[in-house]
């Protein structure tokens, strides 16, 4: 018997949902679909699709080159659709990195000066470490979807009413 593992994409996904059988509401599950969220997003917007106190998972529509970002703590990027490169620079100006207690990543005004650390080339299903203190940029040659493991910060957009079943 041949098997087919089903993955989704912005152009091809099937959404499940919540059926209530007791005394509560569907909105309690904050149910959404990452491909629907990315399909309706502007490139590189970071839309919170999961939140647990300060921790978030943010959904990103990857298209072209992203801004440069830096963060005081690690983050990870899981590519759920497409191909991308993540480029890293160690900033020459140590003042560029946010304070240690600053949560979430900070957008930089442009490519920072500093030493090139390298890059990671990823395709669907690959996960990339975005190490603390390294400036990074995503480059997506084709439309993609990234899930960012991070903390709620300046770039995080919460719009639960728009994305969740209710």
């Amino acid at each position: 018997m041949s098997v087919t593992t089903v993955f989704g994409s912005i152009d091809n996904y099937d959404k499940g949902g919540v059926e209530i059988t007791g005394n509560e509401e569907a909105r309690d599950y904050l149910f959404s679909n990452m491909f629907e969220v990315a399909g309706n997003a502007a490139p590189w917007e970071r839309i919170v699709i999961a939140k647990n106190l300060e921790n978030t998972i943010e959904c990103i529509r990857a298209e072209g080159d992203s801004p440069w970002y830096i963060c005081s703590h690690d983050e990870t990027a899981l590519l759920m659709q497409g191909k991308m490169e993540a480029h890293f620079i160690k900033p020459a100006d140590s003042g560029l990195a946010p304070a240690e207690d600053k949560e979430g990543s900070v957008r930089l005004s442009g490519r920072p000066e500093g030493q090139v650390m390298g890059h990671v080339k990823a395709s669907r299903g690959h996960m990339v470490l975005l190490p603390a203190g390294a400036a990074y940029q995503f480059r997506a040659g084709e439309l993609g979807v990234i899930l960012l493991q991070t903390l709620l910060g300046d770039e995080s957009i919460q719009k639960w009413a728009e994305i969740c079943q209710h």
Binding site: D14, G16, E19, I20, G22, I57
Partner: peptide
Amino acid sequence: VADKNTAAPMSVVTMKAGDVSCMP
């Protein structure tokens, strides 16, 4: 999904590829 204390049924959540849901 059922109530934690009573085991009474609360919901059925079907999740397909790309779906995201919290468990309260």
